[in-house]
Structures are given as C-alpha cells and as structure tokens.
C-alpha cells in the first residue's frame, strides 16, 4: 500500500520497518491497558463495582477493599493543587510574556523548565522537612496533610502550566495588542480582554495537563500527605491518594490484596485517560474558570 513499485528493495524494507516501529507508542499503550486490566479487573467484578468504589473501608487483612476514601483524597489534593498552581502559573506566564523585559524572560523561562526536571522524591523531601513542621506548628494538625500535599503539587505542576501558557501567549499576534491599545484600552485591559481570550485553548490545555500530572504524582504525595485511608474533613487532615495507595502497599501485597492494588490502578488509569482524551473537559474548564475570570477580574 505504502511501498511504491519504483523503490529499491532496501528502500522498501526500510519503509516497512519505519511503518511498523511507528506504531510502538500506541502498541505500548494497548499493552499497558491489557495487562493492568487483566490483573485488576477480576477483583473488581468479584466484589462488585459499586462496592469497590463506594466502600469507605480499606482493610486488606479483613478482605475489605473499598477505595472511596482514596478517590476523595485524590480529588481533594488535585483540587488544592489546582487552586494554588493555576493562579501562580498563569500570572507568572502573563508577567513573563507581557511585562518582563526580554532578558528576564530569557533567564527565568529555562529556570522554570528546570523545575520540571527535579525528581518528585526531592519535592516530597522538602515538604517533609520544611512544609509539614511549619503547618504543624502554625496551623495545627499533624502537619502531613491535604494542605501540604496541595502546596507541593501546586509547585510541581507550575512548569507544565507556565511552559505551555508562555508558548501560547507568545503565539498571539502583536497586532491584537496594538489594536486594543489603539482603541484606548489600558495594558491590563488589552491583556484580559484580548490576549487571554485569544490564548484560551493553550492555557486551558496547559491546566488540564497540569491536572493530569497532579493526579498521577506518587512519590511526593506519599511523603507529605500522611497516608491515612480516611475521607478528609478539613485541609489539615492526613489523606491517602490512589497513587500512594498503590505505591505504599505494592512492596508486600500478595494474592487478592495485590489484585486490589491493580484495581486501584485501573481507576487511576481511567481518570487519566478521561483527562487525556476528553475534549468536553476543555469546554467545562472554559465555563468554570475562564468565563468567570473575564467578568470578575477588574
């Protein structure tokens, strides 16, 4: 089909190889889906989907596998990380693109990108030795809490949000800004009425990517959130997420218990795939975040 008749044998061979290898990424994705589901799905069906998702008790020794508190934990931590990460990240990129002199942008942008390379265990360690004691002393509670996890994750998703937002803001043609300024708009008016709406898709995409990263983060979360498998009632309560549930118990789990961890992985996998693929989420984010911002800011 893709091999033309006038090609030499070598070229035909190479074309075949490249066409085959090109599908490695999608094949790996399929392999991951198959293996995770094969290992985790039997247990979900054995104890029933509603029981698995809505049961609040996680007690592997008593064969109680309910991950409701972990789902709530993931939602709390992710929401907290977004509340901290979105304003910081978006305002940081607006500053870097619209206000900062070129030299500052050239220095700061690579530094923010370097933040993405720092291992998550290191973030977690910083959270344990600095943030958790601070929260414990000044705000009460055990310190290892939803709040600590949200702050650390909010910082961790900054490079994702800033990197993509900067690129989209830079892609907005300068004539847009000039047009707004020529109509008598102030600098800030031109930014939030013209530039931000024009950069809408990219900024929302960056937020969604950051959210995916926050949901999937494991090591930093394990270290700073305290890991008790209860539904949190305040931001100072310790909490356990889906990811940390897997990583904490995978080392020693066997039999049904190990399968239950893979079932947790399935739920996490579904969360992530919804975020990766769902374009409805973009529209939802637009109405939830972006539109109110247009009305209420200034």
């Amino acid at each position: 089909m893709f091999v033309k008749d006038n090609m030499s044998t070598k070229d035909k061979l190479i074309t075949c190889v490249i066409y085959t290898v090109a599908f490695s990424a999608i094949s790996i994705l399929l392999l991951i889906t198959i293996f995770i589901f094969r290992k985790g799905a039997p247990l979900i069906f054995k104890i029933g989907i509603p029981n698995f998702i809505m049961n609040k008790t996680w007690a592997p020794l008593g064969s109680q596998y309910g991950i409701f508190s972990m789902i709530m934990g993931t939602i709390w931590i992710t929401a907290g990380a977004m509340i901290i990460g979105i304003p910081l990240g978006v305002s940081c990129s607006i500053y870097l693109v619209e206000y900062a002199p070129l030299i500052i942008r050239k220095i700061l942008k690579p530094i923010i990108e370097l933040l993405a390379g720092i291992p998550s265990v290191v973030y977690g360690f910083i959270g344990v030795v600095m943030l958790a004691p601070f929260i414990r002393i000044h705000m009460g509670g055990p310190g290892l809490s939803v709040l600590a996890g949200s702050i650390i994750l909010g910082i961790m998703i900054l490079p994702t949000i800033v990197g993509i937002s900067i690129d989209t803001l830079q892609a907005v043609p300068n004539s847009y800004r000039e047009g707004a300024l020529a109509l008598g708009a102030t600098k800030w008016q031109s930014i939030y009425k013209v530039v931000l709406p024009a950069a809408r898709n990219g900024i929302i995409a960056s937020i969604i990517l950051g959210m995916g990263r926050a949901i999937g983060e494991t090591m930093a979360v394990i270290m700073v959130t305290g890991n008790s498998a209860n539904v949190p009632h305040s931001i100072l309560d310790p909490v356990r997420t889906l990811t940390s549930n897997i990583a904490l118990e995978m080392g020693y789990a066997t039999g049904d218990h190990q399968q239950a961890l893979f079932s947790t992985g399935i739920v996490l996998f579904i969360f992530i795939m919804i975020i990766n693929t769902n374009h409805l989420l973009k529209i939802y984010f637009y109405y939830l975040l972006y539109l109110p911002l247009q009305f209420f800011v200034l």
């Binding site: 994705l29 991951i32 999937g216 983060e217 897997i246 995978m250 996490l268 975020i275």
Partner: peptide
Amino acid sequence: CLAGIPSIIFGLF
C-alpha cells in the same frame, strides 16, 4: 496518551 500516563502505572505494568 503515553506522555500523560503516571509513572506508578508504568511501574505496575
């Protein structure tokens, strides 16, 4: 999609 999958899922896999 592969870029968005969390490392813990890769670990399980």
